[in-house]
């Protein structure tokens, strides 16, 4: 890793992330009230949505965009497909399906951190990446719910008492329609898509009015948000002690494997370095906002401490601190 890339660790936002971790580790009473942290996360989504929409209005629709979105969609299906059997070696079907869904889906905050990384490097990326983020949200959950239903059916077939009968009845209660509805009407996704559309409609000229809020304040508010994320991560890390080496290795290695697949595909398709990095980060990230909320209802048998904890406490900090510069380095090598 060269000095310029090492300097990304000295980015104020990343340093505030470390500060949050430190504060939680020394059991400081530093905390950002939940409503403010929630506001910050919504603000960041609005800002990247509108920025992406404006960029899209400038660039227009092009072939590269379709290729990029096709890679995004391909990864959203591929990741749960290959991680589920891998996870089944050590876990029951429900936990395997829930973790596969979490890793098949995406993390908006990691995406934002990658965008910031590219801005610092002076590299542009396509506005359509916000669309890629949205379309990668649902497929993994749909597949995981299907896999969990198969597990339920298998348990019911082998007869394990009343509880299983009840579980069997549960199959139809969380339909495909409901999952899609929950995924696309989730507040975060709705705001992101809405902001993207607004940015696309207003275009670059009208965006100037919004820029002091969605552009100039962005970096400072991102740093503030990552401070809170650091606190959350450190609190969760303590609970990861009993997870075991297999899942810890999974949380660190699967993101790298996914990123390598995307970088290879994007390279073959001739995508730009900026687009490749954003797609790689999307594929490498794991969801801890939308998917855990949906999976909790759709696969209640799975332990949220596992899939939520792994995504937030292990994969998120790995990607933000090491993953993003490492994937960028890989792209530079090609």
């Amino acid at each position: 890793m060269d000095i310029k890339l090492f300097a990304t660790l000295l980015d104020p936002a990343i340093l505030f992330f470390f500060l949050g971790i430190f504060a939680a580790l020394v059991r400081s009473n530093l905390e950002i009230p939940a409503p403010i942290a929630k506001f910050l996360s919504l603000y960041l989504l609005m800002a990247i949505g509108i920025k992406g929409g404006v960029a899209l209005s400038v660039s227009g629709f092009h072939m590269q965009m379709l290729v990029g979105l096709a890679i995004a969609l391909f990864m959203a299906f591929l990741v749960p497909l290959y991680t589920f059997p891998l996870l089944r070696r050590k876990l029951d079907g429900f936990n395997a399906a829930a973790i596969a869904a979490t890793y098949g889906s995406v993390s908006a905050v990691t995406f934002i951190a990658a965008g910031q990384f590219l801005d610092n490097q002076g590299i542009e990326y396509g506005g359509y990446m916000a669309v890629a983020l949205v379309i990668m949200e649902a497929p993994a959950v749909i597949m995981a719910v299907g896999l969990a239903a198969m597990t339920r059916a298998s348990l019911a077939k082998h007869g394990a008492g009343a509880a299983v009968t009840n579980i069997g009845q549960h199959d139809g209660s969380f339909s495909l329609k409901k999952i899609l509805h929950e995924s696309f009407t989730d507040g975060a996704i709705l705001l992101l898509m809405g902001s993207l559309l607004i940015g696309f409609i207003v275009g670059a000229e009208s965006y100037k009015v919004m820029k002091p809020f969605t552009g100039d304040l962005f970096k400072g508010l991102l740093a503030f948000f990552l401070l809170e994320m650091g606190i959350l991560v450190a609190r969760r890390i303590r609970e990861m002690k009993g997870v075991g080496p297999f899942l810890i290795a999974f949380a660190f290695l699967i993101p790298v494997v996914n990123a390598v697949i995307v970088i290879t595909l994007s390279h073959l398709a001739g995508l730009s370095a900026g687009d490749t990095l954003m797609l790689a980060v999307l594929a490498a990230s794991a969801s801890y906002i939308v998917v855990p909320a949906v999976v909790r209802v759709a696969i209640p048998e799975a332990n949220p401490g596992l899939y939520f904890g792994m995504a937030l406490a292990l994969t998120f900090p790995f990607n933000v601190v090491l993953g993003i510069p490492m994937y960028y380095q890989m792209i530079q090598l090609l």
Binding site: A34, P292, R296, G305
Partner: peptide, 19 residues
């Protein structure tokens, strides 16, 4: 609830999945 903890781990109250 502002926060809590249980078998599902810490509930920090920030995301729907941990509130």
């Amino acid at each position: 609830a502002s926060s809590g903890a249980g078998a599902s781990g810490t509930q920090a109250g920030m995301f729907d999945g941990d509130s």
